[in-house]
């Protein structure tokens, strides 16, 4: 009992949870991109939802509670529903399995290789963990930062949202007069 308590307090549970959530995230992400059982976009969308949910689990482990909630609320709750809505609206059939083009595969692998090299480089230049008090998921501090230091980006993003909204309304009208 004592040992288990020590383990729990020492963060072992969090480590295990990290591996669980990371594995879930990656597995679901693989199934989004290449599902051996189904070519239906709906399946892809559902697995993307699962990816997002398990990612918000990772966010929780990183103590970003606000973002975890926003991730589920915006991504899983709105964006993916929109995806599903459009998939159903378009009534897409299951696409036939096509041969993977050699060129595409090569391009993909090359680009992944480039990203990997960047990743390795960035790991090499990684600084040791900065000192200072650990941040908890402070919604209050986040809000304060958002409305003081980041006011200009915030305003720009809101204008962007407005523009996007008008654009979508114009686009989805059947005829442009």
């Amino acid at each position: 009992m004592e040992q288990i308590n020590n383990l729990v307090n020492g963060g072992a549970v969090e480590d295990v949870l990290f591996y669980v959530f990371a594995a879930l995230t990656l597995l679901c992400a693989i199934l989004v991109v290449a599902n051996p059982f189904s070519r239906s976009p709906v399946t892809s969308a559902m697995f993307l939802v699962l990816t997002i949910i398990s990612m918000s689990g990772l966010f929780l482990l990183l103590h970003a509670f606000f973002l975890a909630a926003v991730q589920i609320l915006v991504y899983a709750g709105a964006v993916m529903v929109l995806f599903l809505f459009v998939i159903m609206l378009l009534d897409l059939k299951e696409e036939a399995r096509r041969k993977i083009k050699f060129f595409g595969l090569a391009a993909g692998l090359v680009s992944v290789g480039i990203v990997f090299s960047i990743f390795v480089k960035s790991l090499a230049s990684l600084q040791p963990e900065a000192a200072g008090p650990a941040l908890e998921g402070e919604t209050y501090a986040l809000g304060k930062l958002l409305f003081t230091q980041y006011t200009l980006p915030f305003e720009i993003v809101s204008v962007l949202l407005l523009v996007a909204m008008i654009g979508v309304i114009l686009l989805s009208k059947r005829k442009l007069e």
């Binding site: 559902m46 509670f65 606000f66 975890a68 909630a69 926003v70 709750g77 529903v81 599903l84």
Partner: peptide, 17 residues
């Protein structure tokens, strides 16, 4: 939770699936 309301909204929004 210290983001209780957001949690509720997030979960409620999953109900549509």
């Amino acid at each position: 939770l210290n983001v209780g309301i957001l949690y509720t909204f997030g979960i409620v929004s999953m109900g549509v699936y």
